[in-house]
């Protein structure tokens, strides 16, 4: 089963290598990995998408926790979360295809961020399914290049969810 694991780590050199080395050294799978800054400059945030049975995921979480530079590990998949990925897609667009590319972009609420006489570059963000659906539609036009960020995810705020639920109940 696919899992999204969110890791807070010390913002030091070599930390990414320690995390990646743990996965490769123990034969765990990484489907995607993204690293970014947090509000605290001494910390970085990693989001790793991986898969494995329960025993493997338990090991991954434990082994990550064991790394000295790892501050916190959360398996987001255990609770409610939202996830997004962004992709930049450079697609061939000539003649009639230009209009088609625009239509597809519009349907997916994506944006054209660069254009040349023969190509468009489209920016799309959303859940993986959405990105893949768009890629499938653009494919017949001829995709020149794709760059994807890998998934990032964040836990849903329980309190907010509760408030929303109550609101819904109140609103009938």
């Amino acid at each position: 089963m696919q899992r999204i694991i969110s890791i807070q780590v010390e913002n030091k050199f070599g930390v990414l290598s320690r995390v990646a080395g743990l996965f490769s050294g123990r034969g765990f799978n990484i489907e995607s990995l993204s690293v970014g800054m947090t509000t605290d400059p001494t910390m970085s945030q990693m989001t790793i998408v991986t898969d494995g049975d329960e025993r493997i995921i338990e090991q991954i979480v434990k082994q990550l926790n064991k790394l000295i530079d790892v501050i916190k590990v959360v398996d987001l998949t255990e609770n409610e979360f939202v996830e997004r990925e962004m992709a930049l897609i450079k697609v061939h667009a000539r003649g009639d295809d230009r209009a088609e590319a625009l239509r597809i972009t519009d349907i997916f609420r994506a944006r054209i961020i660069d254009s040349s006489p023969t190509t468009y570059t489209v920016e799309i963000s959303g859940e993986v399914k959405k990105i893949e659906a768009m890629i499938n539609l653009l494919r017949p036009l001829g995709i020149k290049e794709i760059v994807r960020t890998g998934r990032v995810a964040i836990a849903r705020e329980e309190a907010k969810m509760l408030v929303q639920k109550e609101k819904k109940v109140a609103e009938g």
Partner: peptide
């Protein structure tokens, strides 16, 4: 050596 020894030390420092 920090790179080489990463998987065979509990921790290492440069």
């Amino acid at each position: 050596i920090v790179g080489i020894s990463r998987p065979c030390t509990k921790y290492n420092f440069l």
